[in-house]
Design a protein around this nucleic acid. Structure first.
Length: 561
RNA sequence: UGCCCGAUGGUGGAAUUGGCAACACGUCUGACUCUGGAUCAGAAGAUUCCAGGUUCGAACCCUGGUCGGGCAACCA
């Protein structure tokens, strides 16, 4: 896949580590990464950053990248999510190594290794209730105290652990803990829990297990089993790394070791990125599902009209580093404009139509005007657009009393109809509310595009649609979902308070040029002078529905802000 | 008041041996334009968190601070 803007650049800190490892022939100079989502929600643009990183590194260094579902918590995980995750990764243009993998594939091995740790005196069964364990763990500034069950004999631990597995105890009755150091300044080293009892059916292993491993235990071991060399995760796991390494030391043989490296997660202005909050938006119907075009989910961006290339270019541009960041959502918009500008056919669509009657144009005459499909790409060819005496133009392309800098239509003013003629406004009609109902113009036959008088200059160029040929459509105009740059960043206010009431405007009865008749869901266009739009999946042959992906840059609007 | 991590234009983010503070987005000019788009040309914007130190020379090394983030689920 060709990614725009992907020029050569200096190495990010992870590439620097990899090149160092390669130089030292670490792990036989293999590069093997993995993308490890928990199937408990839909992927979002932050995951796209991680996907591009992990799969991108594998491509860059001739390595492999696994897809591994981190499915150690049967209470929250569902098949629907694994399906959507696979679809999103493929849509971004990546293919994982072999089959999709699951942490749950490793449950037997994980159990065996736990037994080994017990035998080595590195793990024990604790009978205490959750609250007691939490209390004994202490707080970051004070050491914890040891559990009274900490020094049980290995045989007893073995017996108890097996009976846990056999389902002899109810949820929460016992846990298996690593025996590390209750006084460690790192909370994660204070005898962390390895297994808990959960009588819960698992989406893949069914009823086979009633004990499930915790993340810290399952993750590194899965990396080890899969031969992962560089295990990339976000910053909040930094403090887990000593535990990651500790577990590996208990089970690993030989010199091969995966290495955990942390990078800063993506934050985007004017949106929220936590799965919990995105789930909440969906559940509370604040948006219309996970793929609502206002959502920062990959499925939402896809429906909004983003291309995989634009998301990849975005991921390239934001870089990889360790400090917290907030990326301006404008950069994402730039990336999609950049790509769509190259590939989107130009068409005429009038969203808020007002009728123009060209009084000196023959009634009943219809002429096909030839227009470029995409001036950026001559190979896109040309199309014919019918022109007649009555056309629609955009309501805001006319002003009764326009300022000097308004390069559009007004009484006595001239304007170019793109691909057709220069017209002059002679008169207009209003209804009793003062709303413009019709505009009367004359045209200059010499000024037809490509014709003898065509190079006469006028200030403005308008898009238009022939009245008798116009087809109607619904257009959905999206704006950012939140009005605040950091909706999540207010201690005293819930992020939902910042939801933008105008984030979706549905405009009906828009007038489109007839070539759009055959447009199919996901087709992308530039509605000339307005923005980039795509056909929504709600669209049918009878009722076309378009989503606005992003408006064109508009220096006129900006000047008037 | 413990441990871990971070700090470079408005936003990201380079500077790979201690040697001219890249680049991108954004902003502003101008040119061009049958999209007020795109494109092209240019500009502004940085005491590299602070204070000391080492050095001919420090964003980078040392010392001490400051500020920000993270860590106390039988979540991941």
């Amino acid at each position: 896949m060709e990614i725009p803007g992907n020029d050569k650049r200096s190495l990010n800190f992870i590439e620097a580590i990899i090149e160092e490892d390669l130089k030292n022939n670490k792990n036989e100079s293999r590069v093997h990464t993995r993308f490890p989502p928990e199937p408990n929600g839909y992927l979002h643009i932050g995951h796209a950053k991680s996907i591009c990183l992990n799969f991108g590194l594998a491509e860059e260094y001739n390595g492999l990248c696994n897809l591994r579902f981190d499915d150690t918590n049967p209470e929250k995980e569902e098949q629907e999510y694994v399906d959507s995750i696979k679809e999103d990764i493929r849509w971004l243009g990546f293919e994982w190594n072999g089959k999709p993998l699951f942490a749950s594939d490793n449950f037997d091995q994980l159990y065996q290794w736990a037994v080994k740790m017990i035998k080595n005196g590195k793990a024990y069964v604790d009978d205490q209730p959750q609250e007691m364990i939490a209390e004994q763990r202490g707080v970051p500034t004070r050491p914890g105290v040891e559990s009274p069950f900490r020094n049980r004999a290995a045989e007893e631990n073995l017996d108890l652990f097996e009976r846990m597995k056999n389902g002899e105890f109810p949820n929460g009755a016992k846990v298996l803990r690593a025996k590390i150091d209750m006084t460690s300044p790192n909370m994660h080293l204070r005898d962390p829990i390895i297994y808990r009892i959960l009588h819960e059916e698992h989406h893949r292993t069914g009823k086979k297990w009633c004990i499930y491993p915790m993340y810290d235990y399952a993750h590194g071991q899965s990396d080890y089993i899969e031969g992962i060399t560089h295990s990339l995760c976000t910053l909040e796991f930094e403090i887990h790394r000593p535990l990651y390494d500790w577990f590996l030391d208990q089970i690993a043989e030989g010199s091969y070791r995966p290495r955990q490296i942390e990078f800063a997660r993506l934050n985007l202005s004017y949106t929220v990125m936590s799965k919990r909050k995105l789930l909440q938006l969906v559940k509370e119907e604040l948006v219309n599902g996970w793929d609502d075009p206002r959502m920062p989910t990959i499925s939402g961006l896809r429906r909004r009209g983003f291309t995989p290339q634009s998301i990849r270019a975005f991921a390239d541009r934001i870089g990889i580093a360790k400090r917290d960041n907030v990326i301006d959502v404008g950069l994402l918009e730039f990336s999609v404009r950049e790509h769509l500008n190259q590939i989107a056919p130009r068409v005429f669509a009038v969203l808020d139509p007002v009728k123009v009657i060209i009084t000196n144009y023959p009634e009943g005459q219809s002429v096909k005007m030839e227009l470029d499909n995409n001036p950026e790409n001559p190979e896109a060819g040309k199309r014919k657009v019918p022109f007649t005496r009555e056309i629609y133009i955009e309501r805001n392309d006319f002003m009764e009393d326009p300022p000097r800098k308004f390069f559009r239509l007004g009484p006595g003013r001239e304007v170019r109809l793109k691909g057709a003629y220069i017209i002059k406004c002679e008169d207009y009609k209003k209804d009793e509310n003062g709303k413009i109902t019709e505009i009367y113009c004359t045209y200059d036959p010499e000024t037809r595009s490509g014709g003898s008088g065509a190079n006469r200059k006028v200030k403005g160029t308008l898009h238009w649609v022939s009245v008798p040929h116009a087809i109607e459509a619904e257009v959905r105009l999206y704006d950012r979902l939140f009005m605040d740059e950091d909706p999540d960043g207010h201690k005293d206010k819930d992020y939902r308070e910042f939801i933008n009431p105008d984030s979706l405007k549905v405009v009906k009865n828009c007038k489109l040029e007839p070539s759009l008749k055959s447009a199919k869901p996901d087709d992308k266009f530039q509605f000339q002078r307005l923005g980039y739009f795509c056909v929504d999946k709600d669209s049918t042959a009878e009722r076309l529905v378009f989503n606005r992906t992003v408006p064109l840059r508009d220096s006129w609007a900006k000047k008037n802000r």
